[in-house]
Design a protein around this nucleic acid. Sequence first.
DNA 1: AGCGGGATTTTCT
DNA 2: GAAAATCCCGCTT
Length: 192
Amino acid sequence: MAQEVEAFPDFLDQDSTQVARKLLGCTLTRTISGNMVKVRIVETESYEETDAASHSFKGRTDRTDIMFGPSGHLYVYFTYGMHYCCNVVTGPENEGSAVLIRAVEPLMSVEYISQFRSKAGYELSNGPAKLCQALQIDKSLNGHDLHQSPLVLNVGNDVAKKDIVTAVRIGISRDKDALRRFYIKGNPYVSK
DNA sequence: AGCGGGATTTTCT
DNA sequence: GAAAATCCCGCTT
């Protein structure tokens, strides 16, 4: 059976900070062993080539190659010796920009994904490495096209401006003051 | 609920 | 050889 693919609007090719804001409220559909899981993006951060905190700041390397590729693909990196985190690649090709997905709110199959984490409730997916565990995202999905199964980005559900909080990013040492973190106000799944 | 420290390995200097 | 876009546990309030 053919996979239904919903086209992305052009906004993924815009400035990553703009995209980070717009990705709030969008959903991800993840298929794991035939089980469908759906989550809503509630927290993001933008990174780009001119940004000292970005992996792409030092140029294109084996690790950051996907960041410089076409938008709409997934950039997965491994960090702290044990965790995976994932980004939606943005901007035109050959530009190293992406949006880190920091937190998601499960919309269905909550029981199913809790088997992949030793936590429940908001601790299921309130952090970039936590949501990768919950959605079983690892290096094998690095470079994956988000138009296709087993991980599809569905665009829509604009969040009202008044419900979007702008803040500084978490866990970085350079460019600490840049306002590149966005989250949905009051959402319990936003990271701490 | 809020803290302080340890885990563990890829990546770049 | 050091740092890293983090998380978990155990201890204190």
